[in-house]
Design a protein around this nucleic acid. Sequence first.
RNA 1: GCGCCCGUAGCUCAGUUGGAUAGAGCAGCUGCCUUCUAAGCAGCUGGCCAGGAGUUCGAAUCUCUUCGGGCGCGCCA
Length: 550
Amino acid sequence: MRATNEISIALKAIVNEMGLSWPEKAVIAPPKDPQHGDLSCNLAMVLSKECQKPPRVVAEDICGKIAAKAPGVAKVDIAGPGFLNFTFKTDFWLGVIPDVERGGACYGSSKAGAGRKAQVEFVSANPTGPLHIGHGRGAAVGDAVARLLNFAGFDTTREYYINDAGRQMRLLGFSVWLRIQELAGKEVEIPEDFYRGEYIVDIAREMLARNPSLPSLPPDKGQDICYEYAMNQILDGIKKDLADFKVSHNVWYTEKSLVDKGAVESAFNELAEAGLTYDKDGALWFATSRFGDDQDRVLRKSDGTLTYFASDIAYHIDKYRRGFDWVINVLGADHHGYVPRMRAAIAAIGRKQEDFDVLLIQLVNLIEKGQPISMSTRAGKFETLADVIRDTGTDAARFMFLYRKSDSPLDFDLDLVKQRTMDNPVYYVQYAHARICSVMRRAEERGLTLPPESDAVLLAPLGNQEDLTLLRFLERFEDTAESAALALAPHHISHYLMELAACLHSYYSKHQVLVDDNNTAIARLLLLRAVKSVLRNGLDLVGVEAPEIM
RNA sequence: GCGCCCGUAGCUCAGUUGGAUAGAGCAGCUGCCUUCUAAGCAGCUGGCCAGGAGUUCGAAUCUCUUCGGGCGCGCCA
């Protein structure tokens, strides 16, 4: 960030002096090939059209002025097509280490969000059964996105929405009720859409043990009790699973509370006043097709009950009313058909497109011994999140989920994630951290102590190729964290960490840290301490431990 | 039929607000432990970025189209 800042400020000033405006299309970024310098910019190429001069001439103009504006720059090269390649002085890069030290756990954070309020709604699984592996992916992504947004300066709330007002919950109560009847020795007929999981029987057994007279209650009353009890049991289980997975929510919001306070009716009124609803065939419709949906949607069915969509609109109105500027929903990709109508609703209530984002989480294929395992809550056959993390550990599972972009399907190979080998990227990164800690311990044994803050004199022995490579990486962390946050793409952090770890391992095998010369040893230790600090911050963004020893 | 996502090395995938010679890991082959953790490092092999057309200084990236895969498309949730 310090490098891009320095260049962009200098270039903007120069462009201004040339009487031109700063082009949006100009990109200042590290080149793919480090031979091209530390930072590269296509400015001359972009500007040449506006000022009607060949790129080369424009580039030379800019080159002549850069030294005075950007003191950290050692040289500027003009590449063939009109790229400007900037190389910074070693001293400039050494300044990154004190930056990291001063930043501490905040190094890499930014003010990109400027205190805007963001809300990430994720998991939100109906409490009709335990979380499975697919929910786990949504949980990992939603949690990491919230961490990223916080780090990028947003005031972020994590929310779980509980659909406790609909038919599914009644069905849950009914399923438990039937199992209780069955346990009491009555003949029961099992309907098609019944919840079959073993956990339903467990809950039934538990309830029966507490209250043996339960089966003789009137069915209506009995089912209500069952539903209430089962939902709370399952919800407690979900909360525990999430806690074990190091995922937390600030707000648990129930659909029922929304309905009870009349939010749905007032949403209907709001839409009606805007002339966006109409009656047809005895139902109440919302004209979502006016906002890009392919057809209009029903809000209140002809039998008087509400659709899922109706309370969702009320819920989203409520979100914005609570002051969130940016509302982000993490959804399973099988719900993508629901996105256009939700977008339509957002537009209808007068919010901008960019105030609302949906992050679709693609399917997770669980693979064991090379064979896919199929999952279905209804059929009661599934691998629960709790089972998986018991097998693999939280860190390995989280990293696997966050290593791939969320909108492509993921093969989750149980045997692989279980393995504590380098096939498993999480250990590669953690090992880099542990390795540094190990060197630090050795240094301590040898009586080397590090000052809390380094300075130019202490760092003077640094400057070889590998030193600079590491420093460039550390400097890039803030840019990476910020762009990952804005793109809602936590996997960028995982990849960054892999690259940083690779540089560290390479460094480690090429340069002895604890050399005889104490000044060099201390300088290298200070560099490694900075690397360790950034690894830690990065791992924290994806919610993975940074172990001191492995 | 309509809509969304995807197609990049043998395998799993990065790279997609248009930028230089398309990158990693795994698998395969070579080397490197009397020195701080070999859970590691260095190197080799491997590509018509699914095919085609267009947009322009410039396309894996944008548009159109064909093919192939996944998922949705109810007054279900």
